[in-house]
Amino acid sequence: MAKGTIGQFGYELLKRTKDQPIPVHPFIRLCLQHWDGTLEQSAAPVISGHLITEQEILTHIQLLKEDLDKVGAEAIRALHKAVVAHKADPNKN
């Protein structure tokens, strides 16, 4: 397993700044920090909308896990299919 791809999830906490005229409720955005290993606002790819409650965060994390499991299962099927095809004809693409 590629150790460099584990531990690449993070979050950003965004809240009102002094110069914002409209009050903003603090919120969390889940992000990938794979690009450079840091999380800076707008630098990391965002993988959630604005999450403002504990339940929203938990629900979104569960949905991400389910989605990742689905992608993993599809990738495994594709790999097995490719291995079988390669064994049948190693010279074919």
Rank of each mutant, 00 (worst) to 15 (best):
P26Q: 07
W35M: 11
P21H: 05
L51Q: 09
G49I: 02
E12R: 10
L30W: 03
R29Q: 09
H80T: 07
T38N: 09
E54N: 03
E40G: 02
P45E: 03
L30Y: 04
P45G: 06
L58W: 11
I76V: 08
E54I: 02
K15R: 12
G72D: 12
H86M: 04
A44M: 05
H50T: 07
I47A: 01
L79S: 06
E54P: 10
T5R: 15
T17H: 15
R77G: 09
K65L: 14
I47Q: 02
Q55I: 08
A75T: 08
H25W: 08
V83D: 10
N91C: 09
L14S: 11
C31K: 09
P26Y: 05
E12S: 08
F9L: 03
G37E: 05
L14H: 14
G72V: 05
I47W: 04
G49K: 12
L14A: 12
G72E: 11
L64V: 12
I52V: 13
A43N: 10
A82N: 12
K15S: 12
A2I: 06
A73I: 04
Q41S: 08
L58P: 06
A85N: 13
S48I: 01
I6N: 05
Q20V: 06
R16Y: 06
V46K: 01
D69R: 01
K92I: 00
A73T: 07
P45L: 12
Q20G: 10
V83Q: 14
G10Q: 02
